Amino acid sequence: MKKKTLLEELRSGTAPPFIRELAGEENMDPADLVDAMLRGEVVVPYNLCRKISRPCAIGAGTRVKVNANIGTSSDYTGIEEELAKLRAAVEAGADTVMDLSTGGPLDRVREAIVAKSPLPVGSVPIYQAAVRAQEEKGSIVDMTAEDMFRAIEDHCASGVDFITVHCGVTTRVLEALKNNPRVADIVSRGGAFLAGWIIHNGEENPLYENFDRLLEIARRYEVTLSLGDGLRPGCIEDASDAAQVAELVELGRLVKRCREAGVQCMVEGPGHVPLHEVEANVR
């Protein structure tokens, strides 16, 4: 019998003690926090592989959360430097931290951050898959679906609490982009990687096509999926255009599948949009 996910436990009427503690921190009734999680309005990233001393609730009715991005590059690859950034983020009051590393010993960097972080840690596995493909095959577009899922599995197994996955970058969405050119084109790194892969290989996005496989991995490790906004606008002129809306529609469908599978999820966004369009994008 499969182990229940946190959402499934809540649906059965069982709430772990830390949920009550989080409700207290948010000045919420525990029942209200549980209800918000069951409606998909709040997530609590918490990988089963490790203990987080400072978990947090993210979403409607909770205080605004601040995420700190850290990570190596091809020019700066030191692990100690990243741990110093982590300490600075914690001391400054960040609620979560993301490892966006693209250079150096990526596994060791991520594992060190996860081991030292009292906060939930997020990552973008497609970055590592792309780096590996570039190093081993000479081109990012030559990575395979297995390469992508290998990176996802590695990140989840190492204790990452939430991962950004650009599942909404599909052939249909790219067709909308092609028919409605932008000023700033694609400004998401992960979105650009997958768009290039789709165009080069003439195939559907593996993360979209094999979404059930992704859900199974997320279930196994209790990892929250952050559905990436690969087609977010990079300037006001591109706000709420055909490509962005097409991706949001796809992400809406995937959110429903996450909830049905008992997997927590949140959606990135909305990118560069006018203030009066923010609410519509979020909803």
Results as ranks from 00 to 15, higher is better:
Met1Asn: 12
Lys2Ser: 11
Lys4Tyr: 13
Thr5Asp: 08
Glu8Trp: 07
Ser12Tyr: 02
Ser12Phe: 01
Gly13Ile: 04
Pro16Cys: 11
Phe18Arg: 14
Glu21Gln: 15
Leu22Phe: 13
Leu22Lys: 06
Gly24Gln: 14
Gly24Met: 08
Glu25Lys: 13
Asn27Val: 11
Met28Gly: 00
Met28Lys: 02
Ala31Tyr: 01
Val34His: 02
Val34Lys: 01
Asp35Lys: 15
Asp35Asn: 15
Leu38Gln: 08
Arg39Ala: 13
Arg39Val: 04
Gly40Asn: 07
Val42Tyr: 00
Val43Tyr: 00
Val44Met: 02
Tyr46His: 14
Cys49Trp: 08
Ile52Asn: 10
Ser53Lys: 14
Cys56Tyr: 01
Cys56His: 00
Ala57Phe: 03
Gly61Trp: 00
Arg63Thr: 12
Asn69Thr: 10
Ile70Ser: 04
Ile70Tyr: 06
Ile70Phe: 11
Ile70His: 03
Ser74Lys: 09
Ser74Glu: 05
Thr77Val: 13
Glu80Ile: 13
Glu81Ile: 11
Glu82Gly: 04
Leu86Met: 07
Leu86Lys: 02
Arg87Leu: 09
Arg87Val: 07
Ala88Phe: 13
Ala94Cys: 13
Asp95Gln: 05
Val97His: 02
Met98Ser: 09
Met98Ile: 09
Asp99Arg: 05
Asp99Pro: 02
Gly103Ala: 10
Gly104Leu: 09
Leu106Trp: 00
Asp107Glu: 12
Arg108Val: 12
Val114His: 01
Lys116Ile: 04
Ser117Asp: 04
Ser117Leu: 07
Leu119Phe: 06
Tyr127Gln: 02
Ala130Lys: 00
Ala133Val: 05
Ala133His: 01
Gln134Gly: 07
Lys137Asp: 11
Gly138Ser: 10
Val141Asn: 07
Thr144Gly: 10
Asp147His: 05
Met148Leu: 15
Met148Asn: 03
Met148Thr: 14
Glu153Thr: 12
Glu153Val: 10
Asp154Ala: 14
Asp154Gly: 01
His155Glu: 14
Ala157Gly: 06
Ser158Gly: 05
Gly159Thr: 05
Phe162Ala: 03
Thr170Met: 08
Thr171Gln: 15
Arg172Pro: 04
Lys178Thr: 15
Asn179Phe: 08
Pro181Ser: 11
Ser188Met: 08
Gly191Thr: 03
Phe193Leu: 15
Leu194Thr: 06
Trp197Glu: 02
Trp197Arg: 01
His200Glu: 15
Asn201Gln: 14
Gly202Gln: 13
Glu203Trp: 14
Pro206Met: 13
Leu207Val: 12
Glu209Cys: 01
Glu209Lys: 11
Asn210Pro: 03
Phe211Arg: 00
Asp212Lys: 12
Arg213Ala: 13
Ile217Val: 15
Arg219Pro: 10
Tyr221Glu: 06
Glu222Tyr: 11
Leu227Tyr: 01
Leu227Asp: 00
Leu227Val: 07
Gly228Ser: 05
Gly228Leu: 05
Leu231Trp: 06
Pro233Lys: 04
Pro233Ser: 08
Pro233Phe: 06
Gly234Asn: 01
Asp238Val: 02
Ser240Cys: 11
Asp241Ile: 06
Ala242Met: 03
Ala243Trp: 04
Glu247Cys: 02
Leu248Cys: 11
Val249Gly: 06
Glu250Lys: 01
Lys256Tyr: 14
Cys258Val: 09
Cys258Phe: 09
Glu260Ile: 12
Glu260Ala: 15
Gly262Asn: 07
Val263Lys: 01
Val263Glu: 03
Gln264Leu: 11
Gln264Tyr: 10
Val267His: 02
Gly269Tyr: 06
Val273His: 01
Leu275Pro: 07
Glu279Trp: 12
